[in-house]
Design a protein around this nucleic acid. Sequence first.
DNA 1: ACCTGAACACCGTTCAAGT
DNA 2: ACCTGAACACCGTTCAAGT
Lengths: 232, 232
Amino acid sequence: MTPQTRKKPERRTDPLSREQIVDAAIELLDTAGEGALTFRALSERLATGPGAIYWHVAGKGELLAAATDRVVSSALATGTAGPPGGMHDVALGLFDAIESHPWLAPQIAAQLSHDPTGPVTTRIFEDIGRQVAALDAPASSWFTATSALMHYVLGAAGQNAANRARARGLGPDADRSAYMDTVAGAWKQLSPEDYPFTRAVADQGLDHDDRAQFLAGIDLILAGLTAGPPAA
Amino acid sequence: MTPQTRKKPERRTDPLSREQIVDAAIELLDTAGEGALTFRALSERLATGPGAIYWHVAGKGELLAAATDRVVSSALATGTAGPPGGMHDVALGLFDAIESHPWLAPQIAAQLSHDPTGPVTTRIFEDIGRQVAALDAPASSWFTATSALMHYVLGAAGQNAANRARARGLGPDADRSAYMDTVAGAWKQLSPEDYPFTRAVADQGLDHDDRAQFLAGIDLILAGLTAGPPAA
DNA sequence: ACCTGAACACCGTTCAAGT
DNA sequence: ACCTGAACACCGTTCAAGT
């Protein structure tokens, strides 16, 4: 039992970098969830003390913003041009990124709220907007359509990611469709007087797979765009 | 300087109730913001100790869920039937509630994620869905349309609430349009190569007032619903 | 049945002191 | 320039002890 060399974790010798910190933060968020991102856990993973991180990053908010920016940028890096199916590509890029990183949707929402002119918000708006502009719709509708699409994409993708995470939580054997049956089952048990609509559509969510369902929403909004002024 | 009777806050004599606790929580959230809801601050306001609250409420999560449920329910209490303009009424009910309670949008999103079959989620889905069902659209599109509308309503209303809160933060004199000029100005300064679309639509957000802008998004989605299958 | 309030196990952040 | 690690001011939550 050598009494000294134990207990103290070995410290790193090379200097930290902001990029390494963001990398480690993303890994921690992905593997252990949103609540696991702690300056203590992060510094342990990086073989330093909590104070060291503050030399490279202003605080937790900035760290989360940097992690969000990194993931969103790489998800949107492909397909900036506007081919006919471009809107689906952009939307699915975000959909998949949010599915792989369930913490992403709340973080993007937070960026939208606290810094609407920040890089994350602007990048998403721009990329969706370009696809809108490439369509056959009057320019006066571009802003409204881009907003509608952006909110739908983020909301629906976040919902999907949460569903997947919860399905995984049920155990490794339980697959997604078993979980969706649970949801539909809960809806079916609602009171017919108070929830007639939800009961009626309870199984519509089970027909198609998630991505097809997601894209159906996109196409619905696009149909309104190119159909001219609303009838009502 | 009487040395005893000072310092100790007077305690309440009547028993607490869950309803009073939720009331106080909503008031705290409205007046001091999301970060101010603390069991210590809440118990001080209620003239008790922090432990007393736990007799009536399981924890912070349940308290936030109860506050969210209360506000959403009262916002949707009116207009459950389906007149022609019913969709606007339901959407504006949520829009106004979220504007008066800026903490509401993130909380509804959290409920959607953690408990998609919970009362808040189900109530919103049901009320929007009834309006969809009252429209002249095929039943096979109801689920998709209701999802799209729900995500748009929550996202756009949350964005509006955040904008308003930030405009208020600029000082009591600065009104909303001055703040929106700031946003549009920031967009105008983006690089023309990287953000051509955002620059191009920078002032489209300023034309109409917020509620009209919000309703334009609703109508866009509804136009797609009643226009038949998408062209593309 | 309902409340008290100290205590526990955490946080994010700071900062003198080291190299 | 970059890091250490103890310390500060908080959290949510628990629980023996009171009434």
